[in-house]
Design a protein around this nucleic acid. Structure first.
Lengths: 155, 155
DNA sequence: AGCTATAGTTCTAAAATAGAACTGTCAAAT
DNA sequence: ATTTGACAGTTCTATTTTAGAACTATAGCT
């Protein structure tokens, strides 16, 4: 496939997959949300090869998900900070964490617990309809082509 | 990396990534939610090589996300149906679609629109706290180690 | 001058993917 | 009775990606 133009397909899922649809990128983003910011930090916690880490970070910067911000002049050193576009990936990451909690758990229990500072409780993420607030299920959703598409061949 | 044992890591994100963390798998799942069920259907709409499609479908069946159901004896033919575990991936897919709609759009407008049959309106998915119902934002969440983990190195 | 920390780049071997052709079963058409 | 076509894969080679390790560069510290 022409993965290099996947981000221009008339399908929002394809476009997202073009940016975050590989294993290393998702794991790097996990570290970002856990407040890792530096090259050595990513490298040592993920055991990713330096080459690939360098490449993935460049790609995330190119797509505007991370900002490369200097934190030291002489020697010039940079750290990688989530932009708003990057922070907006949180529902994707949390949805994946929640699915893993639900369907891939073992006898040891959940690896991590999430506390909502606003209400103080331990929570799970729930996806709801922006209009009526009801929990969303695949079967209650009808999909139809929008302006960005003639024929229907994607999500 | 040892991608073959990623699904046993003490991290729910890793475990999910082990199953759906590659481009073809995500695109195959998109087709599943668009009601594609058969080998030829996936192959022709995705232009994936038959080899990879075969391999990915096997993997999804192995992980219990699709069921391989016969729809014809003589010749034996099968179709691939989402299980409940598979249907539960919907929030992940929708979160990705929504991020794409928001951040990867072009002048042509959205490729697809989603209608919530329950309320009849065109909607966006929103991720809320299961306890208080408020919209979730990364910065309002505090993460701490659960029973499935001693040290904290994941989500 | 030598050691360490940080942030990469370069190199080769191994693994994954692309692309096309091939296999096998059966139904319908000639 | 033989050919054609649909379906669901499998097999093969060439190309691309990734793994793993070593190397480069800048600067502070002793």
């Amino acid at each position: 496939m022409k993965w290099d133009t996947l981000d221009e397909e008339p399908c929002s899922l394809s476009r997202t997959v073009a940016v975050v649809g590989d294993r290393w990128t998702l794991l790097i983003l996990r570290e970002c949300f856990l407040r890792v910011r530096r090259f050595e930090g990513f490298q040592s916690s993920l055991q990713i090869t330096r080459h690939l880490l360098s490449e993935r970070l460049k790609k995330l910067v190119r797509f505007g998900i991370l900002r490369r911000v200097p934190y030291s002049e002489a020697p010039k050193r940079y750290e990688y900070i989530l932009t708003q576009k990057g922070l907006d990936l949180y529902p994707i990451i949390m949805a994946m964490v929640h699915w893993g909690d639900t369907h891939m758990g073992d006898e040891r229990g959940r690896p991590l617990l999430h506390e909502h500072k606003t209400c103080g409780k331990q929570f799970d993420p729930v996806m709801v309809c922006s209009e009526c607030g009801e929990t969303l299920h695949a079967k209650q959703v009808h999909v139809h082509a929008g302006p960005g598409r003639k024929e229907m061949t994607g999500l």
